[in-house]
Simulated scan of single mutants.
Amino acid sequence: MKRFLLLTLLCLASLAPSAFAQGQFKVLVVAIPNRYHHDYAVVAKPQFERMAQMHGFDLAWSWNSTPFDGDLSPYAAIVLLNTPGDELKGEQRAKLEAYVRTGGGVMAVHRALIFNPPGDWPWFERLIGRTFRIHPMVQTATVRVEDPAFPATFGLPSRWVWTDEWYEFNAPVTRGLRTVLSVDETSYDPTRIWPGQTARGMGKDHPVAWYHTYDGGRVFVTALGHTPALYDDPSYLAHLYGGLWWAATGKGIDASR
Results as ranks from 00 to 15, higher is better:
130 R>Q: 14
120 D>R: 11
157 P>L: 07
144 R>W: 09
65 S>N: 14
61 W>Q: 06
121 W>A: 01
162 W>S: 09
148 P>Y: 06
146 E>L: 09
76 A>N: 09
80 L>E: 00
84 P>S: 12
153 T>K: 05
111 R>T: 10
135 H>N: 06
131 T>Q: 10
142 T>K: 10
46 P>H: 11
144 R>I: 06
157 P>D: 09
141 A>G: 13
159 R>W: 11
44 A>S: 15
86 D>I: 05
117 P>W: 09
114 I>S: 00
82 N>M: 04
80 L>N: 01
111 R>N: 13
67 P>C: 08
138 V>H: 09
140 T>I: 05
64 N>K: 08
105 G>W: 06
120 D>G: 11
152 A>V: 12
94 A>R: 14
133 R>H: 04
84 P>H: 04
67 P>Q: 02
60 A>W: 06
132 F>I: 00
125 E>M: 10
112 A>G: 13
113 L>D: 00
89 K>G: 02
156 L>R: 05
162 W>P: 09
132 F>C: 00
112 A>Q: 07
120 D>N: 13
127 L>D: 00
99 Y>H: 03
143 V>G: 04
137 M>G: 13
107 M>Y: 08
84 P>D: 05
100 V>T: 11
162 W>Q: 14
58 D>F: 04
58 D>W: 03
46 P>Y: 10
91 E>R: 14
46 P>L: 11
154 F>C: 01
87 E>C: 13
136 P>S: 04
108 A>W: 01
150 F>A: 12
83 T>Y: 05
150 F>M: 10
128 I>P: 00
45 K>Q: 14
133 R>A: 07
105 G>A: 10
114 I>R: 07
143 V>I: 15
86 D>H: 15
57 F>V: 07
154 F>A: 14
159 R>S: 14
95 K>F: 01
70 G>F: 08
123 W>Q: 08
99 Y>V: 03
128 I>K: 00
55 H>A: 04
158 S>K: 15
157 P>M: 08
51 M>W: 06
44 A>Q: 09
128 I>M: 01
99 Y>T: 07
114 I>K: 08
81 L>V: 03
157 P>S: 10
